[in-house]
Design a binder for these strands. Structure first.
Lengths: 157, 157
DNA sequence: ATCAAAATCACCCTAAAGTATGACTTTAAA
DNA sequence: TTTAAAGTCATACTTTAGGGTGATTTTGAT
């Protein structure tokens, strides 16, 4: 990221200027007070304090902020769940064949066995066989139960 | 928070110890090299570097991390949509009686007419009469269609 | 008190759904 | 290529669902 780079460079430039200014300040102080043995402690202490402050400022300015990301999961309830996602896991568990799933989907649409047969271009008996297989695999007794279960398991919308 | 307090105090104590150690180091250096005007710069520079480092370390240790809260909207697929809201509007339109709605709800649960009759303590014929009324009012032919429609209209979960 | 709607139940009949079994073909995998 | 699963269809039978009609009782509103 280019803006981040510029920002960081600016900081370094600022630090350089500050450092230069501090050196000048030190030289000035050196000339002002004739440094004696006794005054040495105060001078060194001052330098220590100033540079500690500089270090703190530096660290605060240059360091990338520690971003402690708190992810808050917010539940979004979709009233009209048009973007229905099939629960592939449950679907696999049921072990329904392609044709059986088709029949189940049409069942859920409220179609009769005859209507399903017409739609799939097969005989009524075939649909009955499929539905019998579906009920066995889903461990239900009626088509209404099969549909109810399929919806609950998110196999059909 | 008490642990946070202790932690912060520990840091201050450590800083104090470090500071004391540095002062001792400075005194030792002071005695070691007879500080001359020329050596002064080096000495001061060393102090500046050390205390800048100390300041940086201090800031890094003591500063509270910036907490960046990211709210992520996550779609939650509730298998048991307990917070189901009945579409009173559609329900009124259908003009179903109390009993008819009960039968419809049990139908949606995949129950047979006989099972519904047992659950409501009425005869099978009564359930048939009710269901016939339901189909007429909903303008459907089968119970599967009635259930499908009722779910679509948010009359039942 | 009256009246209509709701709720109850019965009988008969048909349609649809579901069960059981067997057989044949197609398809995909070992 | 063999083999199992899937898909197809049929026949016979049982169960459940649904349609039509009529009747009685309960309930709530005017």
């Amino acid at each position: 990221m280019i803006p981040t780079f510029i920002t960081r460079n600016k900081q370094i430039i600022l630090y350089g200027i500050a450092l230069a200014f501090l050196i000048i300040l030190l030289k000035w102080l050196e000339l002002r007070f004739i440094i004696m043995d006794r005054q040495m402690d105060i001078y060194v202490g001052l330098i220590a304090v100033v540079f500690t402050g500089l270090g703190i400022w530096l660290a605060l300015k240059l360091r990338k902020p520690k971003i402690h990301t708190v992810i808050v999961e917010k539940e979004v309830f979709t009233t009209n769940n048009q973007d229905f996602i099939v629960n592939e896991n449950e679907l696999r568990k049921l072990n329904l064949s392609k044709r059986e799933l088709e029949v189940l989907q049409l069942m859920a649409g409220g179609l009769s066995n005859q209507e399903i047969a017409d739609k799939l271009f097969v005989s009524l008996n075939t649909v009955k066989t499929h539905s019998a297989q579906i009920f066995e695999k889903m461990e239900v007794k009626r088509r209404t139960q099969a549909v109810e279960m399929a919806k609950r398991l998110s196999i059909i919308p």
